[in-house]
Simulated scan of single mutants.
Amino acid sequence: MADPKTRRTHTQAELRKLNPMQRARVLAYEQPGKEVAASVLLAKGRLREHATKSAQEAPPPRTRDPEQEKQTKVVGHLKAAEARNRIRLMRFRFQCMRAQELANMISCQPAARDAIRLEVFLSSRPEATSSQVSLGRFQRERVEDLVADDGGLLTNRIP
């Protein structure tokens, strides 16, 4: 029996002296005996025979029922609609909470001028802003007066 590293053969007495791990390593590279080779061929033949039998006995793939496919599609559409609705509600809740937080920030400003500036710069709904200002003439003059008032004389808030 040949050792793959040294290419030398081992006698039966030398093989018996080796521990089981070394003996397994040496015998792993040896050609199997006639009895082992015959049993390996027999096992492979049985496996091939079993594979052909199972392929012949396998039932043909079932075709899907059109009604079941419709139902599956409807369920999919319903699940997608529910997901869209959940996302829409989540966006709406976020926008409401953001608007409340901005209103709170604006109302907590120490001066009316600061409150107006904050309200102009931070709109509660970013997509709702338009280029046209919906203030009347008197409202516009009042806002301009408040913005121009550096000393806070028009609004008498106590700090």
Rank of each mutant, 00 (worst) to 15 (best):
residue 29 Y to E: 12
residue 15 L to H: 02
residue 53 K to V: 14
residue 132 Q to T: 12
residue 46 R to N: 13
residue 26 V to P: 00
residue 12 Q to N: 08
residue 157 R to A: 13
residue 2 A to R: 12
residue 33 G to E: 10
residue 74 V to M: 10
residue 103 A to P: 00
residue 50 H to V: 06
residue 27 L to Q: 11
residue 147 V to S: 03
residue 35 E to A: 15
residue 40 V to L: 11
residue 92 F to Y: 07
residue 77 H to N: 10
residue 9 T to P: 05
residue 34 K to A: 14
residue 53 K to W: 08
residue 120 V to F: 07
residue 100 Q to M: 13
residue 158 I to E: 05
residue 69 E to I: 07
residue 59 P to W: 00
residue 33 G to W: 03
residue 34 K to S: 09
residue 39 S to K: 15
residue 17 K to E: 11
residue 131 S to L: 09
residue 110 P to F: 02
residue 150 D to F: 04
residue 74 V to P: 01
residue 29 Y to M: 05
residue 57 E to M: 11
residue 148 A to W: 03
residue 45 G to T: 11
residue 71 Q to L: 14
residue 62 R to Y: 04
residue 47 L to A: 15
residue 65 D to Q: 00
residue 62 R to W: 06
residue 135 L to W: 14
residue 29 Y to T: 12
residue 77 H to P: 00
residue 116 I to P: 03
residue 88 R to V: 03
residue 7 R to K: 12
residue 27 L to P: 02
residue 61 P to E: 13
residue 7 R to Q: 15
residue 85 N to W: 06
residue 95 Q to Y: 04
residue 28 A to C: 03
residue 39 S to M: 12
residue 156 N to E: 08
residue 110 P to W: 02
residue 46 R to M: 14
residue 39 S to I: 09
residue 20 P to S: 07
residue 66 P to E: 06
residue 75 V to A: 14
residue 110 P to E: 10
residue 102 L to A: 01
residue 140 R to G: 06
residue 131 S to R: 11
residue 15 L to T: 00
residue 27 L to C: 04
residue 119 E to G: 14
residue 11 T to A: 01
residue 21 M to K: 06
residue 20 P to F: 00
residue 120 V to H: 07
residue 59 P to N: 10
residue 95 Q to N: 12
residue 67 E to H: 08
residue 116 I to F: 13
residue 129 T to Y: 02
residue 43 A to I: 06
residue 85 N to G: 08
residue 58 A to E: 15
residue 155 T to Y: 00
residue 57 E to F: 04
residue 138 F to I: 15
residue 143 V to R: 12
residue 153 L to S: 07
residue 98 R to D: 08
residue 24 A to E: 10
residue 13 A to C: 02
residue 47 L to Y: 10
residue 84 R to K: 15
residue 88 R to P: 02
residue 130 S to H: 10
residue 136 G to K: 05
residue 63 T to N: 13
residue 140 R to D: 10
residue 6 T to P: 01
residue 116 I to V: 12
residue 154 L to R: 09
residue 41 L to K: 13
residue 43 A to V: 06
residue 110 P to L: 09
residue 82 E to S: 06
residue 113 R to Y: 00
residue 15 L to W: 00
residue 17 K to T: 08
residue 62 R to F: 06
residue 101 E to T: 12
residue 82 E to R: 12
residue 127 E to H: 08
residue 67 E to C: 00
residue 109 Q to T: 04
residue 112 A to F: 08
residue 58 A to N: 05
residue 6 T to F: 05
